[in-house]
């Protein structure tokens, strides 16, 4: 019963959503150059299946590499800001300002600086757009550590590093994973921004662009669905890691 609920409820909700979409297109009698219906998508997927595999892979690996780098960069910045008040004061306004810049405006900038480096540019954008939540959450997690937590080990003469490793780091993990879930989606936005905007791009974003140029709406919507699927897969991958490393933060069900 419980597993049926767990699997059944999301599936039913997806089916209802697709039916609603299909019905909307059918009732309004929208032609294919205006709006694609779910029933148009299988054909699009099948027709461009090799392109989907190739472009999907391009988008996926660049997003994942971007995320990994965002975790490293964001984590490092978060640690610096979380452990040092001076660095927090120095870096926070810079980071907030940087984060406030619409990243689409940076696409031509990095495209000019790193001409032709399509992979590099795409990964760079994914990092730039997704490291911020990680940096903020890690720094808040570290800086809000109650002094008693530190004192129980400090009173025993433990080093700063030991306290960090045994207490501060594990205590920050739930916040970190919360931020990572946000960053997954942001990283996809980053890669796709570059893929769509740069000429002769690769990846699902480029496929979307070519659909647009050719007026192939079913292809464009198929790309959106493919992106959604990749996003869901990566998101739940993070959820699995969260369960393994920070499962303790989940309150027991009563």
């Amino acid at each position: 019963m419980n597993t049926l609920k767990k699997v059944g409820v999301p599936i039913v909700s997806i089916v209802i959503f697709l039916l609603f979409w299909e019905g909307l297109v059918w009732i309004n009698d929208w032609p294919k150059y205006k709006m694609a219906a779910p029933s148009d998508l299988p054909d699009a997927f099948w027709k461009f299946r090799w392109l989907f595999l190739e472009m999907g892979w391009q988008t996926l690996w660049r997003t994942v590499i971007g995320l990994v780098l965002a975790v490293l960069v964001g984590g490092a910045l978060g640690m610096i800001m979380g452990l040092s008040q001076i660095f927090r004061g120095a870096l926070y306004p810079l980071l907030v300002g940087f984060n406030a810049i619409p990243k689409a405006t940076l696409v031509p900038v990095i495209a000019l600086i790193f001409i032709g480096q399509h992979d590099f540019n795409t990964v760079l954008m994914a990092v730039m757009i997704s490291f911020f939540p990680i940096a903020v959450s890690v720094s808040i997690g570290l800086s809000t550590l109650e002094p008693e937590y530190r004192d129980i080990l400090r009173a025993l003469g433990a080093s700063r590093f030991t306290i960090f490793r045994k207490i501060a780091l594990p205590k920050t993990l739930p916040e970190f994973f919360g931020a990572l879930k946000v960053s997954v989606t942001l990283a996809f936005i980053g890669t796709n921004l570059v893929e769509i905007v740069s000429p002769h791009g690769r990846g699902l974003g480029a496929l979307f662009k070519s659909g647009e140029i050719n007026g192939n709406y079913p292809l464009m919507f198929a790309v959106l669905i493919a992106l959604a699927i990749l996003g869901i897969v990566l998101y739940y991958l993070v959820v699995i890691f969260e369960k393994i490393f920070a499962g303790w933060a989940e309150r027991p069900q009563t």
């Binding site: 109650e146 008693e148 937590y149 004192d151 129980i152 009173a155 025993l156 207490i167 594990p170 205590k171 993990l173 920070a246 303790w248 933060a249």
Partner: peptide
């Protein structure tokens, strides 16, 4: 030295 506080400060993980 051993220390105990009003808050038990147990590590939740």
């Amino acid at each position: 030295v051993g220390m105990a506080f009003q808050n038990p400060v147990l590590l939740e993980w």
